[in-house]
């Protein structure tokens, strides 16, 4: 079972990220997933997070009990949810937006300039999909193939190409990071 928290601010596609991974897991990977969300009254800018539980069997208790993965796309989101991340958890964050504290326990941090990559691709708004590609490569909670099917389901038709490019960018960056980690220092 994977318990995942996506955190950022409204407008970054934080809830959409939970939806896409949940859809990839439950519709295309034949697992079970449950997503819940919390957001402030603002359409943009307020604190925003989504919780996702992905499991091989039916998800009973739908809130996170011990977050195994935190995907942070804002400093406020990181500050708020870092303490709930379990000691063996994975931390994925946008390195231009989040300055992590000294790491505790056996938490493994993975950094990506997701928003910068998105800007290079032409639209800052796909930063969340860049980080989803990164997430797929690093965590393997969902398969690459399922994500490639779930993304077109969840974005407007004219934006599908851009989103898939963003996904690839993040995914390949993730693979490079993993490769570098394995090389002897």
């Amino acid at each position: 079972m994977a318990e995942i928290r996506f955190a950022g601010y409204g407008g970054q596609g934080i809830i959409r990220s939970g939806i896409i991974v949940g859809r990839a897991a439950s519709i295309y990977d034949d697992k079970f997933s449950t997503m819940s969300q919390s957001f402030g009254p603002e359409a943009r800018g307020g604190a925003c997070s989504s919780q996702l539980v992905v499991s091989e069997s039916k998800v009973l208790y739908p809130y996170l009990t011990a977050a195994g993965i935190l995907v942070a796309m804002s400093q406020a989101g990181y500050d708020k949810f870092e303490p709930e991340l379990s000691e063996k958890g994975l931390l994925l964050y946008d390195e231009d937006l989040v300055k992590p504290k000294a790491s505790r326990g056996n938490i493994t941090p993975f950094a990506i300039p997701a928003t910068r990559f998105a800007e290079q691709l032409g639209k800052k708004i796909v930063a969340n999909v860049v980080i989803l590609g990164f997430f797929t490569a690093i965590t393997k909670v969902v398969t690459y193939e399922s994500m490639k099917k779930a993304i077109p389901d969840s974005v407007p038709e004219k934006a599908i190409d851009l989103n898939l490019k963003a996904f690839e960018r993040g995914y390949n960056f993730g693979l490079e990071v993993l490769k570098k980690q394995k090389e002897p220092q």
Binding site: F32, T34, V59
Partner: peptide
């Protein structure tokens, strides 16, 4: 809670 939960 159930109203905003998203599942298959």
């Amino acid at each position: 809670y159930v109203a905003h939960l998203k599942e298959e």
